[in-house]
Design a protein around this nucleic acid. Structure first.
Lengths: 249, 249
DNA sequence: ACCTGAACACCGTTCAAGT
DNA sequence: ACCTGAACACCGTTCAAGT
């Protein structure tokens, strides 16, 4: 229904058939180069300031050259998100299933930590990627099957793992408002410090532990103030919950 | 550094001092009206097609009239996200702490289910809201304190709850690519159906249970294909994990 | 096949002007 | 205080043209 629906027979379909680094000119532009450059650009200027035109400028080509390889902005962003997550599959299944999940969750976090500016894309783009890495899904399912899960419970547990990975990490590295940064940084701080201990006893009691360390009470994101111990606890909580869930079978 | 940084003495600061529905003209425009209209517009056309100019048109004013009340696009979106989540605090603390958390997570999901188009904003905008609802945080902390948690573990558990809520729900209702919808819908289906049972045994075995029901293997989002039972299991897993975590103290 | 080049319809934001 | 109105610098995408 939208304007994107009326696209037709775009030449974007399949581009990287052969490579031909053989003789003369040596094609400089290709799909992977563009995606890599897009990621670098996003790392540099942030998601809000990223544009296809600036990307083209960085690549030294016309804006329309990019769209010969990539169907549009949103598809490019999907590819970028995919690239960031390309190495999250733990190598082998040496350990226990708990160890496998633990390593997966840590790898997921590290992947986003390395490119925090793409964090907002992760939750959005992981919906249904046509280029889903089936190996990734298979291995995760295998680990959960090792835990004794099968059928609908296996599927539920799989969804739970993805939800857990996405939830903590996208939150932790979500961009901080660019506006009057130091202005509301101070506002949150003082607001927390002056909180009424009769009306908000728990907040008052744990004020120092909460400041800049609890979601919605932070003034920096995971890049500047990582939540390492919270993440470790989160993984512990989640995995021990899965153990119980699997044991119930 | 960015262009937003050079804003100065904008008249946007404080707008709704008095209301004056008294006599003659009856101010038609105000902050709440704008936020409500923005949410309605996003519900209607989606986040990608939402623009301040169309919003202004819907309100019957000039684009620049809107920015007298709202500092900019991103701030408006933050307010919209905040509005969607305004009723997620469970009313009383009647039940057990487990019951409280369960209700909170369900309310969170229902809130986003009612406005799925804002789902991508939730993870992003919940970072550090200057207008954080302290009552919300206090009640959540109180529930977790009831579980026997305190100190750093209390903070970790709080973060875990937020992460869990955000993770599942934003995923479940994340927008589906608008491109050649039915094209890749079919692609995912057939790809899943033709999966090699030797290379991907778990995928092959659970093919029917996974199709359109597992993250990254869906071709619809939660609006068309809700993941009710997966969500229930997720909540079970998480809460029983929290029980263990609290018992370890 | 791959890229240039111009053009289109749109966008958020600024700045001056009205009342 | 609140809104109009014009203008600015930018954006993604389309379409024709080159090689």
């Amino acid at each position: 229904m939208s304007k994107a629906a009326k696209r037709k027979r775009s030449p974007t379909s399949r581009a990287s058939a052969k490579r031909e680094t053989s003789g003369k000119g040596a094609r400089t532009l290709n799909r992977d180069t563009i995606i890599a450059a897009a990621l670098a650009e996003i790392d540099l200027v942030g998601l809000d300031n990223f544009s296809l035109r600036n990307l083209a400028k960085a690549l030294g080509v016309f804006p329309t050259a990019v769209s010969w390889y990539v169907a549009g902005r949103s598809q490019l962003l999907a590819e970028v998100a995919h690239k960031v997550l390309e190495d999250i599959i733990p190598p082998g299944f040496h350990d226990s299933w708990q160890g496998y999940l633990r390593e997966f969750l840590q790898r997921f976090r590290q992947a986003i930590r390395a490119h925090p500016n793409v964090a907002p894309l992760i939750g959005t783009q992981l919906v249904a990627n046509p280029a889903v890495d089936l190996d990734f899904v298979e291995r995760l399912l295998a680990a959960l099957a090792h835990a004794g899960l099968s059928g609908v419970n296996l599927v539920s547990a799989y969804n739970a793992v993805i939800a857990a990975a996405v939830g903590f990490t996208t939150q932790e590295f979500a961009p901080v408002p660019a506006e009057g940064t130091s202005a509301w940084q101070a506002e949150i701080r003082t607001r927390l410090q002056n909180v009424s201990s009769t009306r908000y006893p728990q907040l008052a009691k744990n004020m120092k532990l909460l400041g800049n360390k609890a979601f919605t009470l932070r003034w920096q994101n995971g890049t500047d103030a990582p939540l390492d111990s919270s993440f470790t606890s989160f993984v512990d909580i989640f995995i021990s919950g899965l153990e119980q869930f699997a044991g119930r079978e």
